[in-house]
Simulated assay, not measured.
Amino acid sequence: MARFNRKGTTKVLFVETIADPGYMPTATELGTAIDYSKALAATDGWSIENQEIETPDLASTFVAKIPGDDSAADSSLTFYEDDVDDDIETNLAKGTEGFLIWCRKGRTAGSKGMDVYPIRVASNSAQVSLDNEAAKILVKCSIIDRPLQNATVPTGP
């Protein structure tokens, strides 16, 4: 099994619209996406979690479980704040809707591992610190529908 480092490989993109109701972007739509990979300092969430249901019965002291509802983990992106441009504050302002696209194995056409999360920005806040560190902005995102997971990066124009 070949292993790789996410740093330098994984790409994080944002696009406002995707025409496909299943959230599969076209190569053209990906071409209009904003690449936030270089501005990203940290990330949290971006997964689907299952709320299992306990199913105890009288025949056993073991409590079995069955799959229940799925929900999205609380998800956020921490960006480095730019002291010249305000792209993150503007493009990802509170209330903005769009799609966060994770190309986990790179943005190369035909590569596997693309996840597309339909989102609404819940908050966009500067993280003020007196520590010896770069200025940052925390963007919390609500995942508003089931994401497309493990897709292939599209080929074509």
Rank of each mutant, 00 (worst) to 15 (best):
K7N: 15
K7Q: 12
T10M: 08
T10I: 01
T10G: 00
K11C: 07
F14H: 11
V15M: 06
D20G: 01
D20N: 11
G22W: 10
Y23M: 01
Y23F: 14
T26D: 05
T26C: 10
T26Q: 08
A27Y: 09
A27E: 05
T28G: 09
E29P: 04
L30V: 04
L30I: 07
G31S: 12
T32L: 13
T32R: 14
I34D: 09
I34F: 08
K38S: 13
A39T: 08
A42V: 01
A42L: 01
W46I: 03
W46P: 01
S47Y: 10
E49W: 05
N50F: 00
E54M: 05
E54R: 11
T55W: 09
A59K: 13
S60N: 06
F62D: 14
F62C: 00
A64P: 02
K65S: 15
K65A: 14
K65L: 06
I66C: 04
P67Y: 01
D69C: 05
D70P: 00
D70C: 03
D70A: 10
D70H: 11
S71Y: 15
A72Y: 04
A73M: 14
S75I: 06
S75W: 06
S76H: 02
S76R: 08
T78F: 05
F79R: 05
E81R: 15
E81D: 14
E81G: 08
D83M: 03
E89F: 02
T90R: 15
T90D: 10
L92H: 05
L92A: 08
A93I: 01
G95K: 10
G98Y: 03
F99A: 10
C103P: 03
C103H: 05
R104L: 15
K105Y: 13
T108N: 09
T108W: 00
S111Y: 08
M114V: 11
D115M: 03
V116G: 01
Y117H: 11
Y117I: 06
Y117F: 15
I119K: 04
S123A: 12
S125H: 05
Q127I: 13
V128L: 15
D131F: 12
E133R: 13
E133C: 01
K140S: 13
C141Y: 08
I143W: 03
I144D: 08
I144A: 05
D145W: 04
R146E: 12
L148S: 09
L148Q: 07
A151W: 02
T152P: 04
V153Q: 12
V153P: 06
P154L: 02
